[in-house]
């Protein structure tokens, strides 16, 4: 049976797979009921397909005293072209976690969509949210399923961060997990970045981030790291005051995941640009 027939009910109601009580995973359920809806079940011809889809670039995440922040630039590229100036690459995964994506945009967005349903589905069926480690591990399995496509140029590398509701007393509730294309899952200390500009973003965070920063200071380190990445990486977009496009930044704290307003991020970005310009003018005044 193909996928669409299975999303309708038959003449006698639910198909048998729906009434099977076993399993609270949406992905596992799709694998039996509608396997062609799963990105990992698709055959990719063995040619390099990397030029077929836009690629997303830089994502950064940092922890701070109250939780965790994640930000992403707005550019997607296809080869030498900028295919999108306003793509969003950071999404809430559920109330307590966010996911940012770098790599083949088409596959990545489908994966995020599936992942969001996966977490919500588990929550509805079990009446309980997954633990943060459980969520991170589930995402690793989805990335692992994409390994075949990754080897043909359609790699997706996410960054996952969340507020740990079960954090033991005295530990930081904000946690960050990074991945590699084979599904390797690594918890990061303090900050992390993925994508083509991640080298520059990490170098920036190395100098600006400290443990125990408050929310505002930590937000600034995120925006500044993206600015530094855009400065040196052609595939990462900087703040765009002409079109009023600024990085997307999510904050996850005890209240849940919230997207910072464009005005707030624009204010920080403008401050950073102003400071850099002032510093450069001083250099010019000194005769450089």
């Amino acid at each position: 049976m193909d996928g669409l027939t299975q999303s309708h009910t038959g003449r006698s109601g639910f198909p048998p797979a729906y009434l099977d009580r076993v399993g609270s995973s949406f992905t596992d359920f799709l694998a039996t009921a509608a396997p062609d809806l799963l990105p990992s079940r698709r055959q990719v011809p063995s040619v390099n397909a990397g030029d077929l889809t836009p690629h997303g670039t830089t994502i950064v995440a940092v922890t701070y005293a109250g939780g965790v922040l994640m930000g992403g630039d707005r550019r997607a590229t296809m080869g030498n072209l900028i295919s999108s100036r306003d793509i969003e690459k950071v999404y809430p995964a559920d109330t307590w976690s966010v996911i940012g994506i770098a790599g083949a945009a088409g596959i990545a967005i489908e994966m995020v969509k599936l992942y969001q349903v996966e977490l919500e589905h588990y929550e509805k069926i079990e009446g309980l949210t997954l633990s943060l480690d459980g969520k991170a591990n589930r995402l690793a399995q989805m990335i692992r399923g994409n390994l075949g496509a990754a080897l043909q140029g359609l790699a997706v590398v996410p960054l996952f961060a969340g507020f740990d509701l079960d954090a033991a007393a005295g530990t930081t509730p904000g946690r960050i997990f990074s991945y590699d294309v084979t599904g390797g899952n690594y918890e990061e200390r303090g900050y992390a970045a993925v994508g083509s500009g991640s080298l520059f973003a990490k170098n920036s965070l190395k100098k600006t981030w400290r443990s125990g920063l408050d929310g505002d200071a930590a937000t600034r380190t995120v925006v500044e790291a993206l600015y530094d990445a855009a400065d040196d990486d052609s595939a990462t977009g900087g703040p765009d005051p002409v079109r009023r496009l600024y990085p997307i930044v999510y904050r996850v704290d005890a209240e849940g995941a919230v997207r910072l307003t464009d005005a707030e991020v624009a204010g920080i970005a403008d401050t950073i640009v102003g400071e850099r310009a002032a510093a450069d003018r001083e250099n010019v005044d000194r005769g450089f």
Binding site: S7, F29, L30, E120
Partner: peptide, 10 residues
Amino acid sequence: VRLADVRGYS
């Protein structure tokens, strides 16, 4: 829940 999620997803 499964029917709703499959429909909403597809």
